[in-house]
C-alpha cells in the first residue's frame, strides 16, 4: 500500500514539476535561452492567487484566472524588457540577465510581503477521493489531471494549429519564418505567455500542496523543474512532462524508502547522470540535417 501511495505522491509533485518544466522547455525551444526567472514567475503566480482570493475576497476561479493572466503578462514583459534587447548577444549575457530578473522578482516580493511564510488559501474540498483501496487527496488528483490536460492541449496546439506550427518554424529558423510572413516577436511573446501561464498553475498547485508560500519558493521548484526539462530533453514538451513525473517519483521514493533529507541529492544526481549518459535527454534526438 505504501508503494502505491508513494507513486501517487510522486506523480502529484511530478505533475507540478512537469507544468513548470514545460515553461522552461518551450522558452528554450524558441528563444534558445534558459529562463532562470521562470521559478520566480511561479512564485508570483502563487502570490497573485493569495492576494486575489484571501485579501480581495474574490472567488477561487477569479483568483486562478487572475494568476494565469498576471503571470502570462509578467512573462511577456520580462522578455520584452530584459531578454529581447539581448537577442543577438551571447548566451552568457542572457543567462546572467535571467538570473538578475529572478533575484529582482524575489526581492520585490520580499519587500512587499516579507520573508515570513504566508498561509495559502485552501479552496479545494477537504478529505480524499477513494478509488478502490487507494485514497488520493484532491490536490494530487488536480495536479495530475491538470498536467495531463495541459500537456495534451499544448501538443495539439503545437502540432495541429497554424499558430503552433509557426511557433515550431520560429524555433528552428527565425529568418526563414520571417520570410513566411510570421511575426517572430509576437510568436516569442506568445511562447512566454503560455509558459508563464502554465507556471502560474504550477504555483497554485504548490500553494495547495504545501499550504505555505514565501518569496523563495520558486528557487528550488524552478531548479527541479529545470532538471526535469533536461531529463526529458530540453525543447521537447512530451519530454518535459515525462521528466517532471519521473523527478517527482524519484523524489517520493527517496523520501519514503530512504530519507527525506536525501531527496534533493537524488534529484541532482539524476541531472549529473543524464548529462553524462544522454546529454540530449530522454526524448531529445539530434536529427541530422542535410545541407
Amino acid at each position: 500500500m505504501q508503494f502505491f501511495a508513494t507513486i501517487i505522491n510522486g506523480l502529484s509533485t511530478g505533475g507540478m514539476y512537469a507544468l513548470v518544466a514545460i515553461g522552461y522547455t518551450m522558452v528554450y525551444g524558441i528563444a534558445k535561452m534558459i529562463n532562470f526567472a521562470h521559478g520566480e514567475i511561479i512564485m508570483v503566480g502563487a502570490y497573485i492567487t493569495y492576494v486575489v482570493f484571501s485579501l480581495l475576497g474574490m472567488p477561487a476561479f477569479v483568483a486562478i484566472i487572475a494568476s494565469i493572466i498576471g503571470c502570462a503578462l509578467l512573462g511577456v514583459v520580462t522578455e520584452k524588457v530584459a531578454y529581447k534587447p539581448l537577442r543577438n548577444s551571447g548566451s552568457l549575457a542572457v543567462l546572467i540577465t535571467a538570473i538578475g530578473v529572478s533575484y529582482l522578482l524575489q526581492n520585490v516580493f520580499l519587500l512587499i510581503f516579507g520573508s515570513a511564510a504566508i498561509t495559502f488559501p485552501s479552496f479545494l474540498p477537504e478529505g480524499q477521493i477513494h478509488l478502490g483501496g487507494l485514497s488520493i487527496s484532491y490536490v494530487s488528483a488536480l495536479s495530475l489531471c491538470l498536467t495531463l490536460i495541459c500537456t495534451v492541449l499544448l501538443l495539439i496546439f503545437i502540432n495541429k494549429t497554424r499558430l503552433g506550427k509557426a511557433m515550431r518554424a520560429v524555433s528552428e529558423d527565425k529568418g526563414a519564418a520571417e520570410l513566411m510572413g510570421i511575426n517572430v516577436n509576437n510568436t516569442i511573446s506568445l511562447t512566454f505567455a503560455i509558459g508563464s501561464g502554465l507556471g502560474a498553475i504550477g504555483g497554485i498547485i504548490y500553494g495547495l500542496s504545501y499550504s505555505l508560500i514565501n518569496p523563495y519558493l520558486g528557487a528550488m521548484l524552478g531548479i527541479k523543474a529545470f532538471i526535469a526539462a533536461v531529463l526529458g530533453g530540453i525543447g521537447d514538451i512530451k519530454g518535459a512532462m515525462v521528466g517532471g513525473l519521473l523527478i517527482g517519483l524519484a523524489e517520493a521514493f527517496t523520501i519514503t524508502f530512504i530519507s527525506s533529507t536525501f531527496s534533493d541529492a537524488v534529484v541532482f544526481g539524476i541531472l549529473i547522470f543524464i548529462l553524462l549518459v544522454k546529454p540530449a535527454g530522454l526524448f531529445g534526438v539530434n536529427v541530422r540535417e542535410k545541407v
Partner: peptide, 26 residues
C-alpha cells in the same frame, strides 16, 4: 514578394506538408 533563401532553409522538423502550409501562412 517571396524569397527562396540561400541554402533552402526549409523547416527540417516540420513535415513537407506543414512546410508548404507555412508558405501560405498569411
Amino acid at each position: 514578394l517571396a524569397q527562396v533563401p540561400e541554402g533552402r532553409r526549409i523547416f527540417s522538423q516540420l513535415s513537407v506538408q506543414d512546410n508548404l502550409e507555412m508558405g501560405a501562412y498569411l
